[in-house]
Amino acid sequence: MKLKVLFGQSKKLEKKIENYFIRIMDSVLIFQEGVNDYLDGNLADIPKHAAEISKIKEEAAKKRREIEEFLYTEMLIPDARGDVLELLESMGKISEKSSKILGNLAIEKPDLTGKLRHHFQKLTRLSVYCIDELKNSSIAYFTNISAVKSYNKKVYFYENEVDKVEEEIKKVVFATEKIARLSHRMQIRYFAEKIAELSDMSERVADNLSIYVIKQSI
């Protein structure tokens, strides 16, 4: 009976962990929608997106605490418990960061028109791809550990692409005559760096995942 309960409970937990990653990804997709809305000039929808992300963030934090409590009370995966909790926390931080960036965009309203609009769209899209691959890698860590490596490769690829676009934005911003004030140039650079940080964070989590995989090899 206890075994049945144990297997049943762990099945519930498996679902909960997978849902956690999916919800984090949802928040990142909303972030992308928010940035696109901003770039299209739909500023009115941004507070709605920020509120949605905030709600998901709270929900995810609650889920993470439940997972943590269950792992400890049921003494599950003693060898990987710390790694799993660190992974969940890191993913949560990515969502939190994206929410902050969107909030700051709405407050500071940098001028991202013209050529920059296209660059920022690309930067955001690639960062989201990067996080999506990280989500796949994280789920694979639980379900198909041998696939983590190939997902991580994609994370590294997109991170590299994001770096290139970030650099391109900086070059454009500091070369153009259209932006008169240095403070405006620096503000745009700040947002480019902040969005690119999402992929940097993903890269770090992917690095950690590679170590978790080595630790899990039997």
């Binding site: 075994l3 144990l6 599950l76 990987a80």
Partner: peptide
Amino acid sequence: FFIVRTLFNRSRIHLLRRDS
């Protein structure tokens, strides 16, 4: 070691279920 590793890898068992 190789038998168990092959079994676990082929079955693509979830980390939590592997634990159980």
